[in-house]
Amino acid sequence: MAKVYIYKSFERFWHWSQAALIFFLALTGFEIHDSFHLFGFEKAVAFHRTASYLLLALIAFSIFWHFTTGEWRQYIPTFSKLQAQIRYYTVGMFKSEPHPTIKSARKKLNPLQAVVYLGFKLVMAPMVILSGLLYMFYKSFDVNDMIIALNIPLEWIAVIHTLGAFLLMAFVIVHVYMTTTGHTLTTNIKAMITGWEELDDEPENGNENSKNTVSEGEVVETKKTKENE
């Protein structure tokens, strides 16, 4: 095991501000949807719109970052160990089987994560963002100017946007829960906050003396179970 600097500062900034924005957009969006009352419709709309601009700007930066750093490659799906990964979460982890894949700075995502996050980036996010923009500028041009999206009924746009929002919510729930499946409940979250994570050495080394690097009590527990295998 070694402490590895896995999430760079921009990545962490991007991750948490995007999380906050999506949470806030969901809050205001579902108020607009009249699912509950919090800010009042008028403020909810104003906040939703402002936050959506921030999200757009953030995503523009993050796209730039992904491509300039080559980090986008992290999301190329590999199907070879996908099944093993699914088996791990459904069966393996209960039998204390080891993670089928190794996390490293070069390969941060397991195959399941890669696929799901790719889905997030290629399906869910574009779905809410594009429909959100259409929603925002729906028939906002004067009769004499060009009218965009004249013949798309608002209901379709709203339906896609709402569905995207629900998908995002489901994603967030599962995503937050999955962070607790690291070495300890909070390892993953801590890593995303500090950038550093204790990782197994790249080619898994059975003789590695894990106790040397373990400092916190909770980690000891997991390590013990590992030793019991």
Binding site: I32, H33, D34, F41, E155, A158, V159, T162
Partner: peptide
Amino acid sequence: FYMPGRDRN
């Protein structure tokens, strides 16, 4: 027509 806040599918 569809009105946000009032209508939903």
